[in-house]
């Protein structure tokens, strides 16, 4: 039932990441709204998960005839869903041409993830802070049913200002959910300012460690480091793993990188062309 591609070399993963970035820019340009910054920062994380780490089957997504042993991915930072849509379509969960109807009525691809509408989406999110709890529920069910599947959940670094994240983090460690691995997209920016200036959640690693988590820190744009961290998380027993992925918001497009303004703005057609050119020839 498995559909991951263990044969994919680093170069091929990087190529997929480039294609994903181009999809994101095009999708948001056509949609006329969306969140390019945080979508671009988590590209390598999502590509690594779907193309190399997770066991899943696009022919049997969530639903009545689903493969119940599949690994689950919860996008807690739901606004970055263009990245996931691009990867899901590339994996064959739905046709590629859906991508160009992002955020349009009846498209099946809403502005934030909906598990009822979109094949491959495992949880409805978009209101920040809820994904880790949902992932905990999935991991608890896996333990109860003695299943081997793993649950991956991607959090935003601004998102961890939500109190529910810390409620959930205690649940994860209290129940020793070592079948759960969280990834923090540490791109350092939220809508209004840097996370440091808004609520200053630092020190990150120490916080999660003190909440009972195994913590690994990686370059979130480096496939080698990400894959090693995911592999490591499988060896950790009795507690969950948090991968702090240091990333760049807007990664891959020079005029978007580290810019607050590109959190939730659609590029013009001119900017879109420029961005795609840059991604093709870095």
């Amino acid at each position: 039932m498995e559909n991951k591609r263990c044969d994919l070399k680093m170069k091929e993963l990087q190529e997929i990441a480039r294609e994903t970035r181009k999809d994101i820019i095009k999708m948001i340009n056509i949609a006329g709204s969306g969140h390019p910054g945080g979508s671009l920062s988590c590209v390598e994380i999502v590509v690594a998960l779907y193309f190399r780490v997770m066991h899943h089957n696009p022919k049997a997504p969530r639903g009545a005839t689903s493969w119940t042993d599949r690994d689950r991915f919860v996008l807690s930072k739901g606004h970055s869903v263009p990245t996931v849509y691009s990867v899901l379509s590339r994996m064959g969960f739905f046709p590629r041409d859906w991508l160009w109807k992002l955020r349009k009525i009846g498209s099946g691809l809403d502005g934030h993830p909906c598990m009822i509408k979109t094949p491959g989406i495992e949880a409805s999110t978009g209101s920040l802070g809820q994904g880790l709890s949902i992932a905990n529920g999935m991991a608890l069910a896996g333990k109860m049913d003695k299943k081997d599947y793993r649950v991956y959940v991607l959090l935003g670094d601004g998102e961890i200002e939500e109190g529910q994240i810390w409620e959930a983090s205690m649940t994860t460690s209290r129940y020793g959910l070592d079948n759960l691995c969280a990834i923090l997209d540490h791109n350092r920016l939220q809508i209004d300012d840097s996370i440091k200036n808004i609520k200053n959640p630092y020190p990150l690693a120490e916080k999660w460690q003190s909440f009972g988590w195994e913590v690994v820190e990686v370059d979130g744009h480096n496939f080698d480091e990400l894959l090693k961290a995911f592999e490591y998380s499988k060896q950790v027993k009795g507690k969950p793993t948090m991968i702090i992925a240091n990333t760049i918001k807007g990664k891959g497009v020079s005029f978007m990188e580290n810019q607050l303004a590109w959190h939730g703005k659609s590029p013009t057609t001119e900017q879109c062309e420029l961005a795609i050119k840059e991604i093709d020839q870095p």
Binding site: V74, A141, E167, M170
Partner: peptide, 22 residues
């Protein structure tokens, strides 16, 4: 599962469990 004084966490956890057939 007693999820403690964390009603928000409890409801979303319930969703995750239910999505796995509980």
């Amino acid at each position: 599962f007693d999820l403690g004084l964390a009603e928000a966490d409890m409801m979303s956890t319930a969703a995750g469990l239910a999505s796995c057939g509980k």
